[in-house]
C-alpha cells in the first residue's frame, strides 16, 4: 500500500505532486481506483484543469463517491487548488458545476486585482508565502486561512483544502506537505 494516493481525473498535473512527496521520502501512486482511494494513508486531490471536466471524470469513475465515503470515515484528504474548490457544493466555473460537496460553500470568480491571481503571496495566519495560480476562489464557513482577503484554505473533519500549490511553493510548500503527512 502506498502512503499517498494522488487522485487521477484526466487533466491534473500529478507529476509535480508526486515529485514533491518523493522529495519527502514518501511513496505515492496516481490512481482513480476506488479501493486504492479508500485504503490510502492520505489522498490528494490535485488541481489543474477545469471544474466541469474534472467533476464529470470524478463522478463517472466513482471517485467522487469514494472521496465522500472516505470523508465520512474520517480518513485524511488534501485538496489542492481546483481539488480544494471541488470539495465544496458548487462552483460558478464553466457555467456552473456541482462539486463533491464534502464541505459547505461555493466557488466564485475573483473580482479584485489582476485575474488570474498569479504568484507568491503570504498566507495568514500561517505566515509563509506560497505560490498561487487561480481565477476562482472559495467562499466557505470552513475557511481557516486567507491571503490578501481571499480564502485560501478550508478545513473540516478529515478534509483540508488549500488554494496554493504546495508542490510548487519551494521549501515552504514541502514543509506544508510534511505537516499534512504527520498531523500534530
Amino acid at each position: 500500500m502506498s502512503d499517498v494516493v494522488v487522485v487521477e481525473y484526466g487533466a491534473g498535473n500529478t507529476r509535480s505532486v508526486r515529485a514533491a512527496f518523493t522529495h519527502l521520502g514518501v511513496t505515492s501512486v496516481v490512481s482513480s481506483d476506488l479501493a486504492t482511494i479508500a485504503n490510502a494513508e492520505l489522498v490528494v486531490l490535485p488541481g489543474v484543469g477545469s471544474a466541469r471536466s474534472a467533476m464529470e471524470h470524478l463522478e463517472s469513475t466513482g471517485a467522487a463517491q469514494a472521496l465522500r465515503d472516505r470523508f465520512e470515515s474520517g480518513d485524511p484528504i488534501l485538496g489542492i487548488c481546483l481539488g480544494m474548490q471541488l470539495a465544496l457544493e458548487h462552483s460558478d466555473e464553466d457555467g456552473g458545476v456541482d462539486g463533491i460537496g464534502l464541505l459547505s460553500g461555493s466557488v466564485h470568480l475573483l473580482t479584485e486585482g489582476r485575474v488570474p491571481r498569479l504568484g507568491w503571496a503570504p498566507v495568514e495566519p500561517w505566515g509563509d508565502a506560497y505560490y498561487f495560480a487561480h481565477s476562482y476562489a472559495a467562499h466557505s464557513p470552513d475557511a481557516v486561512a486567507s491571503s490578501e482577503g481571499v480564502t485560501v484554505a478550508i478545513e473540516r473533519g478529515a478534509f483540508l483544502g488549500v488554494q496554493f500549490h504546495p508542490e510548487k511553493s519551494g521549501t515552504a510548500g514541502l514543509a506544508f506537505l510534511e505537516r499534512c503527512l504527520s498531523p500534530a
Binding site: 487533466a11 489543474v48 484543469g49 477545469s50 471536466s53 481546483l82 488570474p116 498569479l118 495560480a133 487561480h134 481565477s135
Partner: peptide, 8 residues
C-alpha cells in the same frame, strides 16, 4: 484555456 484554465 478551456482544458487547463487561463492560468496555464
Amino acid at each position: 484555456a478551456r482544458r487547463f484554465g487561463s492560468q496555464a
